[in-house]
Design a protein around this nucleic acid. Structure first.
Lengths: 338, 338
DNA sequence: TTGAAAGCGCTAACAC
DNA sequence: GTGTTAGCGCTTTCAA
């Protein structure tokens, strides 16, 4: 069986307190004792029992990461970064998948509590402000991406309006005159923000908005993008550019364009949002908004850590993370010159 | 503060034992008491403290999933399925990323122990048999994919030789005469198996192997595939088909072919392995070996559960999971007919 | 600087 | 059926 503190103490001929002090890096231990404890630690291969430690400390050593689905590239990438960031604080990350349904998001919020986790990072998709009201988990929460407005919860995200505006301005600057948008969705706050950015960019270019060019997407998967794009291409006057609210939609759009024998970007330019790794390798490669995902992950984890460890609470944070417009073949390049 | 069993017991006017019985679904509780306990449970919003429960039970309620990187689509997809499968047993999944380095895989193996997890699912990349010798974790381990031979550890995977052979036979049946392979790698057992399948299929088609058509890949990322493919296309006599040892390599190969202005599959057919979701949407879509990932995840989790819960140990298992050859545009189809 | 001992919340053996 | 209680392994007062 695994060695306990007691075993180590017996072997080293000291009390458990001394062993505990050594294990926890307490400075004032007689060198002689320290040596012996370390030897005993080594000999027994001691590992602290986390359940016991956490029970005693009143902490769990875990944070939760609540997201729609790990198989979605953006979330897979983000999860990997969060896990790495959490290791700085010796936290383990519990991943909860909600498929983006409000019901499961609410459940995750309720079921997870102080008894299981020290804090949670939430990437909600459908959660509304009501779901938070009168709701005290007793543990810090930070929302990433989507932002439930009017709820005093820490939030980390890029400036969605500006990012969308930047992407669409890129399209207008290329000379595109009929720019569509794919991805509006009543349930998603970011969809509204991206739409706003799209509209602003059109206005700035002196273009008027055509309602038929704004296409909703229920989910943000590749097939939804393909579907929406086919719809756009069936229009009497199809678009010469499409701004998709995420990369998966854009990948689907790329495919729909190819099916119709259209060249991208010559016949229709396509831009995405998220900078999934696959977007650099699609054919053509995809112009996209690249959020600093590493910064998102680190900031979210750090924020939880500050809330957990600081005694005097600080104001609710709304942190803006930088992003970049990644220009690739689907709008401006030519295959092979990437 | 969160309510404890004691609080609930006091409120219900019964002992903690009775409350514990109700919480744990013990059948023989007087209906009257059960009702009162349930009311008290509801009123206090009681949630069991897992640290305490696990400490007492000598279990942790966690299993580890050790894999190279969540941002690799195959692993992101697998992780999602494992998490879902683990919920059947009320297990939470701890994900450990190793970047596929032997060092970090070994560390994960050593650092994780009975004090933290009840079992582990391992998707090793570089681990050698030596790393396991004389190594008793005291917790069940199951390897997924790669198999360290000569180590008595449960293993779940598809028949790699047969799968590779099936893919390459598909290429020979299409009339390809000069079939390359991308992905050999001395550190990976599956690479050797897939190479063996490749060779068998060539032999069965009466073709002789050309050493210059077998290209190694250090990593299995998109860029490694592109690199290897460029190398192949620079050959005096380039291949008319390429079998890549995973989909990411194939995606990279697709791109390298496009850069040279080659048509796929007309000029060169390309097949992959893994059936990453993006492979159905690449242009052209990718013919690939599709392992039953859901079965892999479920089988691995079930196996750990059996080892944890059964008292009399059963023999080491080597479970074969079914796979399918997914024929798409990159070998046989034409864009738009998918 | 170190030891003894209490107790975190829970389960289960034992008594009734 | 239900109550009492010992301890799971750890941290942390409190004394020494």
């Amino acid at each position: 069986m695994a060695a306990t503190l007691k075993d180590v103490a017996a072997l080293a001929g000291v009390s458990v307190k001394t062993v505990s002090n050594v294990v926890n890096g307490y400075a004032f231990v007689k060198p002689e004792n320290r040596r012996r404890v370390e030897a005993a630690l080594e000999a027994t291969g001691y590992r602290p029992n986390l359940s016991a430690r956490n029970l005693r400390r009143g902490k769990t050593g875990f944070i939760a990461l609540v997201l729609p689905e790990l198989s979605i590239p953006y979330f897979g990438e983000l999860a990997g970064l969060v896990i790495t960031a959490a290791r700085r604080y010796d936290w383990n990350v519990l991943i909860e998948q909600t498929q983006g349904t409000r019901d499961r998001e609410r459940t995750a919020l309720t079921a997870l509590g102080p008894h299981m986790i020290d804090g949670a990072i939430l990437s909600p998709q459908a959660l509304a402000a009501e779901d938070f009201t009168g709701f005290d988990r007793g543990i810090p929460l930070v929302m990433v991406g989507e932002h439930a407005v009017n709820v005093p919860i820490d939030h980390v995200a890029i400036d969605n309006v500006l990012a969308a505006r930047t992407a669409v301005r890129h399209l207008t600057s290329l000379g595109c005159r009929r720019i569509a948008a794919i991805g509006t969705n009543p349930g998603r706050g970011t969809a509204a923000l991206r739409l706003e950015g799209y509209r602003t960019a059109l206005r700035e270019a002196g273009m008027t908005e055509s309602p038929e060019l704004i296409v909703p997407a229920l989910e943000y998967h590749r097939q939804d993008g393909a579907l929406a794009m086919r719809h756009l291409l069936d229009l009497p006057e199809p678009p010469d550019a499409v701004f998709c609210f995420n990369d998966l939609l854009a990948i689907g759009a790329l495919r729909a364009a190819a099916e119709r024998g259209l060249r991208v970007p010559e016949d229709v330019a396509i831009a995405g949002f998220d900078d999934a790794e696959e977007s650099a390798y699609s054919i053509p490669s995809l112009t996209t908004i690249a959020p600093d995902k590493l910064a998102i992950a680190r900031t979210a984890v750090d924020l939880i850590h500050r809330r957990v460890s600081e005694d005097d609470p600080f104001p609710v944070q709304d942190v803006q993370i930088p992003f970049a417009l990644e220009i690739r073949e689907s709008t401006a390049g030519r295959l092979g010159l990437a």
